[in-house]
Design a protein around this nucleic acid. Structure first.
Lengths: 237, 237
DNA sequence: TATCCTAAACCTGCCATACAGGTTTAGTGG
DNA sequence: CCACTAAACCTGTATGGCAGGTTTAGGATA
């Protein structure tokens, strides 16, 4: 094995290798889908063992910067909120973040996405957003379904805002939302209350479809205000 | 070696192991600093090789959910925006995110943090925020210094907003900001222009110190509007 | 010539083992 | 009771190996 690996800057071999790989992506101007060198080749080029390259790849895959699949070469990944979602979830589970704090951030972000979506959404997006809202009403006896459409509804609005960073952030709350959503739902025990909550979604979809940013903004704000109220009722302190 | 590892659900051994470890953190209600089982022990418990446990640990460390140090047991990590910052940086380098899009998100987030900081900051925080703003003016001949205090200024405001999720998001833009900051600086070639930009920071610090949320909000908004204008002047399309 | 197919080459997932150093701990001597 | 040291433990890295998925070149076929 090559012994010339003494030059390395302080940190561990693995983190240096991570740096080298991201540098490779940057300098070669690789985009999503482009293939990276094989583990063996990187191992040779960087004079480290395949073990180290593997761990570096593994770490990058954990952050969803690259895609790994057996037999295939590693490829540059599309933007993905999976890692960020895990970070947020970790924060909640270790009690470094409260559910309310998340709602405050979501309100801040999503009043903006609602507004932008009203201005920028395509016809298709407007329709998809409305479809999710309507599906919530249709399936309102099946909370599981309602939740899925609710999550998709918010993500679709972020997408319609035409700014992937908003999508990333909204997506980052998905894992936590899946866990707290049922609490909010149960705190609205009557059909009337549940349908009222769903109606806000439908109205919001309508505002986005007709291109009324102010109304979209206000409805999203109201949605979150109501949700926080519901959570407080449920005793989430 | 134990052959009973067939039960595993679809995904790879490593990702299953990651799930098991996060589950361990959750069920044992571990908090920051608490120690996890050793690699060897987890390897035994989960009937996988140490290699797999190592790669799982490595992935979790990449997302900054745990801390790893040679010889020491892995510990649960404090909330850290390192991973999120890499994700954003990756998005920009692979041209999936533009610098403007980031500014739009930052404006959305930071007008809120400025407002909250004005309402919630402690006396210490108010002082630290002001110190950074003043240090920008004092060192304004040394861009490197100005940038560092600028970054710290924004982070400190997020911290004063008393919502760690805001800190996380503001921090997530740090790596990218370090790379784009000089562009904005160079687009303000005269001392007067540079000092004008810095003055906004000082005024903002003052608003937060005196507890004027509306003014803090407006100044932060203006700050971002000016910055975007500067970037456009510099030709960042 | 173009297309389909197959076998070889390549590649990744996972495992076992080994050893150098850093860290913790228990025990020993003062 | 305290300070110190040696042993036990732990992680970082390397090597070699094998099973199985993927790619590809080249030959067979239409």
């Amino acid at each position: 094995m090559n012994v010339s690996a003494k030059h390395s800057d302080a940190a561990s071999l693995v983190s240096n290798t991570i740096g080298e790989i991201t540098r490779h992506i940057r300098t070669h101007e690789l985009g999503p889908g482009d293939r990276l060198p094989s583990e063996a080749e990187l191992s040779r080029q960087l004079s480290v063992s395949r073990t180290v390259v593997r761990e570096a790849f593994s770490s990058l895959a954990a952050m969803r910067l690259i895609d790994l699949r057996a037999g295939r070469r590693a490829t540059v990944a599309e933007l993905d909120y999976g890692a960020m979602s895990l970070v947020i979830e970790h924060g909640v589970h270790t009690e470094q973040i409260t559910v309310q704090q998340i709602y405050d951030v979501r309100r801040t972000i999503e009043t903006r996405t609602a507004m932008l979506a009203a201005l920028r959404r395509s016809a298709d997006e407007a329709e998809r957003i409305r479809d999710h809202a309507l599906a919530m009403r249709e399936n309102f006896q099946r909370p599981e379904q309602v939740m899925e459409h609710d999550l998709a509804f918010h993500l679709e609005i972020a997408k319609a805002a035409k700014n992937p960073v908003f999508s990333l952030i909204v997506g980052a709350f998905e894992r936590v939302s899946r866990q707290t959503w049922p609490i909010g739902w149960r705190s609205r025990p009557s059909d009337a209350e549940q349908l009222e909550m769903i109606q806000i979604h439908i109205d919001l979809a309508e505002s986005i479809a007709t291109g009324d940013p102010q109304s979209a903004r206000d409805l999203m704000a109201r949605h979150f205000d109501e949700s926080v109220k519901a959570l407080l009722t449920a005793g989430i302190a």
